[in-house]
Design a binder for these strands. Structure first.
Length: 561
RNA sequence: UGCCCGAUGGUGUAACUGGCUAACACGUCUGACUCUGAAUCAGUAGAGUCCAGGUUCGAAUCCUGGUCGGGCAACCA
């Protein structure tokens, strides 16, 4: 009953900044964040961290979070991505209400900001070529040189900029630049580009514009316009913060606080958009939603739940140091969640026939099986039991090593939900000597509720009735990359050498009949085989099950020793 | 070679902002229980906080100097 005053979870550094601001009444105690993806690709688990961070911190402080599409580069962006992002964020369980915004909503306002800077003498139109701009910028250790166009008059700049807007000049011929300092130690402050000319169709504004603002000129101002208080972004934008603040100050508008955090890295996983695109385009995977992809849609199809991903984001925490999270942690999160919700089913992947010699030939019994042992309210189902069964090949060993609890000659084992059987013999293939079937006898008194049902045996194995089994397709997934840090793979290098050839194995299994009615998206635990999700995209007659994750298996460790 | 940022068990995150034996989670290993060896429960090992100095009664926390890692020279975001 006694509640300790100590909070369950300590505050992360972002929370501390927010609480500090709140103490200083910096934003009247308001917390307003935003998740600002560029619609140029699909969201992945790294974005999920950012989404949880932005929506989560807002919620924690009774604030709100906007969804804003950072669509300032028409040549890279597409509505396809907008739609997928919207769907993925919603699926993760976050609600942005009516606050769905686009940087392109603010193009007119941003344009006015630009004219304002020109009039203030803080921006100029530059005619230098791409190459020359690069040359004039200097290097990381050497100061740059000022553009020869830097001292144009306000009138000339204004005239030129307006003509840029009206479409008078071709792509690449002119840009608008801020007038800051070509000798600044921060390269981004060396007269950064504000606007460039792109005669391209924008997915929202069509051909209304032919000049588009750069990220730096758009992001902070968009934050400001939306009255954002805390603009949470990844570490690589740290060096952009002085510029972010510079625009806000020169424009004299509401000043949000940019806060940077370290992006998520996962072992055996690539996260960069370029590489993910390479996997899709190179045909290494079957699309953005391939269950081996770390994309949100891939994880969803694989069988991950929003809850498990949110929990994962919570557990990994947030800080500024580079980190590589073991995928085992992600897998732990999904096992934990699926253990609670997945229905148990019996299925055999590598069948071995088991014949119960003393079981009546034509008898079929309907055995009660619980759907989830931890949640009785999940109910029970009936499974047909008969004389001939399939068991898993690995559940029988002719010459068992010590500590092998499963079936072996002379040994007793329980058939899950059914009887205790004793192995009495093996039938082998005449030529090859391979085990064709295993024979056993059963004790009719050992069924649940029977007098001998409490008899202790070391092992329990799963089975399925030969006569009644249905066939199902199972897709067994492993990590796509063998390498623990595949992000190190050089740009342009072929993925082939690094891809795990066993990352996808398609097999047919024999399953209990009730799996016939499996519906898309449903989650099952096939005893000992792992957690599975019914593939939503399959057009196959038989059920198709994607393995989300294997069960932890301590036997394989024992066996190795 | 310049600027910015970071460094705590195998991995990640904490440590009431200078104060108790450096905590928690995952992973590891061990045991109990079980109609699966899963789950559950209990327990174990593993860091003295990048290094060297300094301030202090007291430093993971402050100062100085190093070392290592990351980011920055798209008309990408």
């Amino acid at each position: 009953m006694m509640e300790t005053s100590k909070p369950e979870k300590s505050l992360n550094f972002i929370h501390e900044i927010i609480e500090e601001d709140s103490r200083n009444n910096k934003y009247e105690g308001r917390v307003h964040t935003r998740f600002p993806p560029e619609p140029n690709g699909y969201l992945h688990i790294g974005h999920a961290k950012s989404i949880c961070l932005n929506f989560g911190t807002a919620a924690k402080y009774n604030g709100i979070c906007n969804l804003r599409f950072d669509d300032t580069n028409p040549v890279k962006e597409d509505v396809e991505y907008v739609d997928s992002i919207r769907e993925d964020v919603r699926w993760l369980g976050f609600d942005w209400g009516d606050r769905e915004y686009y940087a392109s909503d603010y193009f007119e306002q941003l344009y006015e900001y630009a004219e304002f800077l020109i009039k203030k003498g803080k921006a100029f139109v530059c005619d230098l070529s791409v190459e020359d701009i690069g040359l004039f910028r200097g290097t990381i250790t050497q100061a740059g040189k000022e553009s020869p166009y830097r001292n144009r008059t306000v009138e000339e700049n204004l005239d030129l900029f307006r003509r840029m807007r009206s479409g008078e000049f071709p792509d690449g011929s002119k840009v608008l630049r801020a007038k800051i300092n070509m000798a600044h130690s921060n390269m981004l402050m060396r007269d950064p580009i504000l606007y460039r000319i792109i005669h391209a169709e924008h997915h929202r504004t069509g051909d209304k514009w032919c000049i588009y603002p750069m990220y730096d000129f758009a992001h902070g101002q968009c934050d400001s316009i939306e009255n954002i208080t805390h603009s949470i972004c990844t570490l690589e934008f740290e060096v952009h913060r002085p510029l972010y603040d510079w625009f806000i100050k020169e424009l004299d508008i509401h000043a949000p606080q940019q806060i940077e955090f370290a992006r998520l890295n996962l072992t055996n996983t690539v996260m960069s958009k370029r590489k993910l695109l390479g996997l899709v385009q190179g045909g290494y995977v079957k699309g953005w939603d391939d269950p081996r992809m770390p994309t949100i849609c891939g994880l969803r199809r694989r069988g991950y739940t929003p809850e498990s991903i949110r929990n994962f984001a919570d557990i990994i925490g947030v800080a500024k140091r580079d980190n590589v999270i073991d995928v085992a942690l992600l897998e732990h999160c999904i096992r934990e969640d699926l253990n609670k919700r997945a229905l148990r089913r019996l299925a055999v992947i590598n069948p071995l026939k088991l014949v119960i010699e003393n079981y009546p030939d034509d008898l079929v019994e309907e055995l009660d099986a619980v759907n989830n042992p931890e949640y009785p309210e999940a109910g029970i189902r009936k499974i047909p039991f008969s004389k001939a069964l399939y068991i898993e090949q690995e559940d029988f060993m002719e010459n068992p090593p010590p500590k092998f609890f499963r079936l072996s000659p002379g040994n007793e084992v329980r058939l899950k939900y059914g009887y205790i059987v004793k192995c009495t013999g093996i039938v082998k293939e005449e030529n090859t000597g391979q085990i064709k079937e295993v024979h056993c006898t059963y004790d009719p008194e050992t069924r649940r509720g029977m007098p001998n049902s409490n008899k202790k045996v070391k092992g329990t194995i799963h089975w399925v009735s030969v006569k009644h089994a249905i066939k199902a397709e199972v897709r067994l997934y492993e990590h796509l990359f063998i390498k623990e840090n595949p992000e190190e793979i050089e740009e342009g290098q072929d993925f082939k050498a690094n891809i795990n050839p066993d990352s996808l194995q398609i097999k047919t299994c024999f399953a209990e009949p009730c799996l016939k009615e499996a519906k898309a998206g449903e989650k099952y635990q096939l005893e000992r085989l792992g957690y599975f999700c019914v593939d939503p995209d399959s057009e196959s007659e038989k059920p198709v099950l994607n393995r989300t994750v294997t069960l932890k298996d301590s036997w394989s460790k024992i066996a190795k020793k």
